[in-house]
């Protein structure tokens, strides 16, 4: 007997039946993102942060002192891990299968997120390129601002269904749609 292991996204069932044509307010669920967690060894925090700032290919998310998440496209997977592995004083761990990345964008993105997170997301406080860990729909997640009206949420895989459902519920009045993105 041969077994076929198929990659199945955890949100596959949640997204089935949704209209695929995106509205202005849209959630893009990355189908196979590469997410790595980076921890700096004691005393190396500043040096690692410096190296991460000049990292090419992945976007670096701040989690806490000496702790980051690096998200990148699936294509870069191993290369990104290698590049991060070269940083002295840092430990790298692949979290791609344990995390789900959702990008929410659109003119009402901030209004929708205002019902999900309790942090101030105004541009003066949470500027483009900034990221932090926060509770999103009661789940500890990492939120990053990747554009003026574009946010990326990284949640643990097992909570992704619940966060996704609540996010869509909050976005219903703004006609929020969702689909998988191919990268």
């Amino acid at each position: 007997m041969t077994l076929h292991f198929l990659h199945r996204h955890v949100l596959e069932d949640h997204l089935a039946g949704f209209e695929t044509r995106p509205n202005p307010n849209h959630v893009n669920v990355a189908r196979r993102p590469v997410i790595l967690s980076v921890l700096a060894h004691s005393g190396h925090e500043a040096a690692v942060a410096e190296r991460l700032a000049e990292l090419a290919g992945g976007s670096v998310r701040f989690c806490g002192p000496g702790e980051w998440l690096v998200a990148g496209p699936a294509l870069l997977g191993e290369e990104l891990a290698d590049r991060l592995g070269e940083i002295p004083g840092a430990s790298v761990c692949d979290q791609s299968d344990g995390k789900v990345l959702m990008a929410i964008g659109g003119p009402s993105a901030r209004k929708i997120l205002a019902k999900c997170v309790a942090a101030d997301l105004h541009g003066d406080v949470f500027a483009e390129g900034q990221s932090a860990n926060m509770l999103c729909c009661h789940v500890a997640s990492n939120l990053a601002r990747t554009g003026a009206d574009l946010f990326e949420i990284i949640v643990p895989r097992s909570f992704a269904g619940s966060v996704f459902e609540e996010l869509m519920e909050m976005g219903r009045e703004y006609a929020l749609t969702a689909s998988f993105s191919e990268d």
Binding site: G64, P65, A118, A119, D120, A132, M134, L135
Partner: peptide, 11 residues
């Protein structure tokens, strides 16, 4: 000091 102003629910 690391994350900014947050509600007590996070703590």
């Amino acid at each position: 000091p690391h994350c900014g102003t947050r509600p007590k629910e996070e703590f």
